[in-house]
Amino acid sequence: MSGSKLVDVLEELLIKGVKKHMIADTPVAALCSGGVDSSLILALAAKENSNLSIFHADVVGKNSERFAAEALAKHLNLDLRCVEVKDQDFVDAIPKVTRHYGQPFAYHPNSIPFLKVTELVNQHKIKVILTGEAADEEFLGYSYLPTQNFFGKVQRGIQALLSSLEKRPLVSKALFSSTRKDIALMQNFFGRFETYAEEKELLSELIESNGGDFDLNSYKTFRLLSYHLRSLLHRNDSLGMASSIEARFPFLDHEVVRFACNLPYKQKIKFSFGAYRESKHPFLMTKWVMRQVADRYVPKELSYRPRRVFQLTRSRE
């Protein structure tokens, strides 16, 4: 199937998915992060409801995406409601977020803006929100993915070298202090080892069912959906419920998931001059097919805008 035909199919599936996710006996709103995923979902939802309420958590600072959220609201002629999240709000909210999240939320510091925006949604007597969750997993939106195969090999090589050095007592004593080892021990604690074990099982099953002829790139969507998305959904569920809000995910409509899992890698990450601003993977466009659909509904500068990452200590997704 050609690229443009695939774009048509995805558009149709997303229109159906959004319609289904808007069925409710209470008003349905949408989150507007300013990124392409939520922008596409809310643009499709606005076709169904021209008075759609949209909400944005503005993490004040150089990575604020408020300008993009405002541009989209203006384009769609919708009212944007914002809550500002400042540095001190982050610190103050840690205990509350931890209590609702139920586990240390080290991998998802954006849990705090999420909680703040659901509190705002609740103040407006809305109980259901649509979000753009799962697009990054289905269509490979994370910025490390285009170069993962290359850097993964380099990293594995360095790790193999370090672990062989660590086995030599004299070298180990000189190079690896006991404090470094303590840090490594603690970092392993955050390593989500249980999901890695499941992931290995899933990979071996896939390789077996494909008779060994298996493209690892195709596996990336499966992998992200099976372990990374799970923690994001937990975040949305636990912190949405903290404000009595039900979060819904049109990208997880079963037909969209099926389409994404079967979509060739080359339709997800593609060479494109339009991606020249991507600092981590210049000229490689992530979520290509989805951006093509978004291009039909949101201004071009939003559908091809590089993602901005909510940061605490350094860039993390």
Binding site: I94, T98, P104, A106, R180, I183, Q187, T313
Partner: peptide, 16 residues
């Protein structure tokens, strides 16, 4: 060791 991300994770684990 000035590993800020590690301290952040440690702090979140401590709060938990």
């Amino acid at each position: 060791f000035n590993d800020k991300e590690f301290y952040l994770r440690l702090m979140l684990l401590e709060v938990w």
